[in-house]
Amino acid sequence: MKKRRKITGRRVLGVLRYIPLILWVLFFAVAFGWILLASFSTTREIFSNHLLSSGIHFENYVEVWKYNNVGHYFINSILCTGIPCVLIILIAAPAAYVLSKKNFFGKKLTFNGFVVGMSVPSVMLIIPIYCWFVRANLVGHLITLVILYTAFNVPYTVYFLTAFFATVPSALAEAAMIDGCSEMRALWKIMIPMASPGIITVTIFNFMNIWNEYFMALIFANGNDKIRTLSMGLQNIITSMTYTGDWAGLFAGVMIVFLPTFILYLFLSEKIVAGVTGGGVKG
């Protein structure tokens, strides 16, 4: 008697556990599905709740595209994310290699420095750095964001890769160095390729952190379409659409920014999930 109840109980639980999953995912699907439909409607239809009743209005998209340099936003975001992702590895990987494979005076201190560095909030650093950029006349150029995104992600990447290099055997590199290969060469030709799973993981993690960054972009990449990143561009679209009361255009703007990222995610979700999990667990 007792056993049977347990089995049915388990079966009920087996079905019940899908409910939170379905609700959670369905909510997002409905919300973005509605926004997709709204982006093809007119503003009056949106407010009166008769989406698409006058057919599909593709001109909402045309208008957003015409009046905003959406292409520019994408290019800026790609530059501001891609370049730092490469630079971070170029700076952090050698440092991590040294920290994990060498012994020297102050090693522990250096390593702990990076650990402390990765938990310093960026608002604590941004004011003096803004000062420098102002004096160097750099504000209003994308390079500020490239510098900031690179620098602020180096400590964590060093920390992560140090742990990763510790798991990579160094015998091969040592053998190569005995054969007359320089240490730098051994690092880039042997160690780094062997550490590539870790490098990919941490790069995906960095990429996800930088791609949608808002605070620094608001300070350094605002006010001008030449430097706006996607987040800033979308914010600009939304502001302009609220002033003209164009909700259809507003939702079209959201879709234009959302869809490419979404499609990319469809193809890379496994890699991204693995990267974020791997990079974030010890954050």
Partner: peptide, 20 residues
Amino acid sequence: VNWAGRDVRDILRASLDSGN
């Protein structure tokens, strides 16, 4: 022209300060 929109008011001074 930079069609900056109404938000420009919030950042005008900062933009001028920073050498735009």
